[in-house]
Computed example of a mutant assay.
Amino acid sequence: MKLVKVISTMMVATTLGIVSTTVKPDISAQAETVKSLTKIPKALRGTWYFYYDYKNNAYNYYDHYKITSKKVKVPLVSGGYDTNTIHKFNLKKNSKSHDSLYNLDYGNAHNWMFAYKKGNKYIMEHWASYSTDEKSDFATYRVVKKNYKGKKVTGLQIHYYNSPKGSWSFYSPSKKVAKYLATH
Score class of each variant (00 low, 15 high):
Asp63Phe: 06
Val144Phe: 08
Ile67Val: 14
Lys5Met: 12
Tyr102Ile: 01
Ala182Gln: 00
Arg45Asp: 05
Leu76Cys: 11
Tyr116Glu: 06
Glu134Gln: 13
Ala182Asp: 00
Met124Trp: 06
Lys42Ser: 13
Phe170Thr: 07
Asp137His: 15
Pro173Gln: 01
Thr14Ser: 14
Ser28Gln: 07
Leu91Lys: 07
Asn84Gln: 06
Asn162Ala: 14
Ala139Cys: 15
Leu37Ala: 06
Ala115Gln: 02
Ile158Trp: 04
Arg142Trp: 07
Ala178Cys: 02
Ile158Arg: 04
Lys117Arg: 06
Thr22Trp: 14
Ser69Gln: 12
Asn57Ile: 10
Asn94Asp: 08
Ile158His: 07
Tyr51Asp: 03
Gly46Ala: 11
Ala58Asp: 15
Ile27Asn: 07
Lys42Gly: 11
Ser163Glu: 14
Tyr65Ile: 07
Val74Ala: 08
Asp99Val: 03
Ser28Arg: 13
Ala178Phe: 01
Leu16Asn: 01
Val34Asp: 13
Val23Met: 12
Lys96Glu: 06
Asn111His: 05
Ile86Tyr: 03
Val4Cys: 12
Ile123Gly: 12
Ala109Met: 03
Leu104Pro: 01
Val12Met: 04
Tyr160Gly: 12
Trp168Ser: 05
Thr33Arg: 06
Ile27Ala: 14
Lys121Ile: 10
Thr14Arg: 06
Ile27Lys: 10
Tyr116Ser: 07
Glu134Val: 15
Asn162Arg: 11
Ala29Asn: 13
Val23Gly: 11
Ala29Cys: 02
Lys121Ser: 14
Val153Ser: 09
Ala115Cys: 10
Tyr161Thr: 11
Asn94Gln: 09
Asp137Tyr: 15
Ser174His: 00
Ser129His: 14
Ile158Tyr: 08
Tyr52Ser: 14
Leu76Trp: 05
Tyr160His: 07
Thr21Ile: 11
Trp127Tyr: 15
Ser129Ile: 02
Gln157Glu: 13
Tyr102Lys: 09
Lys165Val: 13
Gly79Val: 01
Ala31Tyr: 02
Leu181Tyr: 00
Tyr59Trp: 03
Pro173Tyr: 00
Lys176Gln: 06
